[in-house]
């Protein structure tokens, strides 16, 4: 299992390593090797950060929560028994932290949106999704981003999570089920409901 996942997710920040072997790195980290911990952080930092960021739509809080996630994971790495992949285990920590954060800071919601990647050049294409009957016809890409993120924040934490993992990160239902500790049908139902909710929130802007 671990071997399979390792092949699916080759290391991004550790080009020097000939082959990324998650199990070996985890074993080393469990033995107190800080270099192995560094490798694990570099391997998963982007995905963990972006999952948290898409759930709370605030860069500063997402950065802090991502750091806390890795700190907790490294401190408790000996509790990891290999029953699931390390990736799933790490995601669970991140997701639980984020949901707790959302619950405790429910009233303090401040959007702090990241800019789109400079290499990403689909701005016009995205704006093409906006209805011509939109109240603000000259809506720009940043505004559209803000509207979408605000709509995401109206979803419940579980619905937000499932949309983030599937529609934003492109994770399969089975893996989401593992992370959220529920079956695939529940994931599908939540995804369907969350999309409906988002569509309802964005009905003034999106093309029907």
């Amino acid at each position: 299992m671990l071997e399979t996942i390792s092949k699916k997710h080759p290391a991004k920040g550790v080009e020097a390593m000939p082959e990324w072997n998650e199990k070996k790195v985890v074993d080393r980290a469990q033995n107190g090797d800080m270099e192995a911990c560094d490798e694990l952080i570099q391997q998963y930092q982007e995905r963990i950060y972006s999952t948290i960021y898409h759930m709370i739509s605030n860069h500063e809080d997402a950065a802090d929560l991502a750091q806390i996630t890795f700190i907790k994971a490294i401190r408790k790495i000996n509790n990891f028994k290999g029953q699931s992949s390390f990736f799933t285990w790490l995601y669970r920590i991140a997701v639980n932290n984020t949901i707790n954060f959302i619950r405790t800071k429910r009233k303090r919601v401040i959007l702090s949106i990241n800019q789109m990647d400079e290499e990403f050049d689909r701005g016009e294409e995205l704006l093409g999704l906006v209805s011509k009957e939109t109240p603000q016809r000259d809506i720009n890409r940043l505004e559209l981003q803000g509207i979408l993120n605000a709509a995401m924040l109206k979803l419940s934490p579980n619905h937000r999570l499932v949309v983030t993992l599937h529609d934003v990160q492109g994770m399969p239902h089975e893996q989401i089920g593992e992370i959220m500790d529920c079956n695939t049908n529940t994931v599908r139902t939540r995804l369907h409901y969350a999309r409906k909710q988002l569509q309802a929130h964005l009905s003034d802007y999106l093309k029907q």
């Binding site: 972006s50 898409h54 949106i113 689909r122 999704l129 964005l202």
Partner: peptide
């Protein structure tokens, strides 16, 4: 092909 999904997929490009 639903617009909402395309819009969500574009969020992946929101990076620090």
């Amino acid at each position: 092909t639903e617009p909402i999904q395309e819009l969500l997929a574009s969020k992946k490009q929101e990076k620090p």
